[in-house]
Design a protein around this nucleic acid. Structure first.
Lengths: 158, 158
DNA sequence: GCTCATCTTTCACCAATGTGAAACGGTTGC
DNA sequence: GCAACCGTTTCACATTGGTGAAAGATGAGC
């Protein structure tokens, strides 16, 4: 929540981090906001109205918290989209389903449809390739040694 | 502009058309809206506040504009315009309709009116030429291997 | 330090896609 | 008609992408 127009810098710093903000209008004309993650309300404000606008912003912010993978191997996330190959898409699908939590090594091997033993490190290679693709749109795959992997949002640190 | 909650049907019909709407709150609690093309205001409302919200919606709606293709094969976009040949125009039309999302290979072949198999790669050639034409005005066609293509705005990196 | 899991690189092979050149076909203006 | 032009189709070849395999490099845990 940002006082407006007195806290302009906070507004722009939040904006550049891609975080939502509600402008509390003290005086002056209302701003025209085009960012879906921004809204405003004139003070003094009714509690229920304030809550409704905050809740809307919160939902808009949290909605795209999971990457979306369509049936054509196109994976969409905050920074854009990438096309995945069939195997990569299957891997990504199971990782996305448990987004931000761990997926066992074994279920990933199953996702690649390959029979588990001969291909000692074929999963490693696929994961390597998937990492390469996902990095540009801000997704990272972290390792849980001996157990599995976690797909999550990369740190915004550019 | 939709009265709320008395004109619910109009709200959903506008929503399904992807058009913006401003809910005029007559009574009852304010709604939580997650669609960026929707907003609300409580009646009676100050003129300047109403205008600000309407203007915000208008800008959000117009921002993600598509390239425009007229009946003479002239395609207009931010950086100017180019003239397309008939086949290129038909291709561009279906790509523009789904601007920024994927168009299947097959529907593109249909757009060229050719019967799908004999012309093994005639679509490739057309796409190649279309790419050449569109590049100068800042449009790119990205490939989704085995599935289709996406027409989108090129990176502003000039 | 040793072992083992994981990561990365490289190679080989094949399939899909991109591209230029050329052949083909229609239209226009003479 | 015919020449010039333009759009379209096809062909041949180059380039890129997908996949599996193998081998070396890295790093964690004992």
């Amino acid at each position: 929540m940002v006082r407006w127009p007195s806290e302009q810098e906070m507004r722009s710093s939040l904006a550049s981090e891609g975080r939502p903000r509600l402008l509390l209008l003290e005086d002056g004309p209302p701003p025209v906001v085009t960012d879906p993650l921004e809204d405003w309300i004139r003070l003094p404000a009714d509690d229920s109205e304030m809550w409704a606008r905050l809740e809307s912003l919160r939902q808009r912010w949290e909605a795209p918290r999971k990457p979306k993978l369509d049936g054509d191997g196109v994976l969409t996330w905050a920074d854009g989209w990438v096309a995945l190959s069939p195997i990569e898409a299957r891997l990504a699908a199971v990782l996305i389903e448990k987004f931000s939590s761990m997926v066992s090594n074994h279920s990933l091997v199953l996702a690649t449809q390959t029979s588990d033993d001969v291909r000692r490190n074929s999963l490693d290679v696929q994961l390597h390739r998937l990492r390469r693709r996902l990095a540009p749109i801000g997704l990272v795959i972290r390792t849980v040694r001996k157990r599995g992997y976690v797909l999550e949002a990369g740190t915004e640190a550019s």
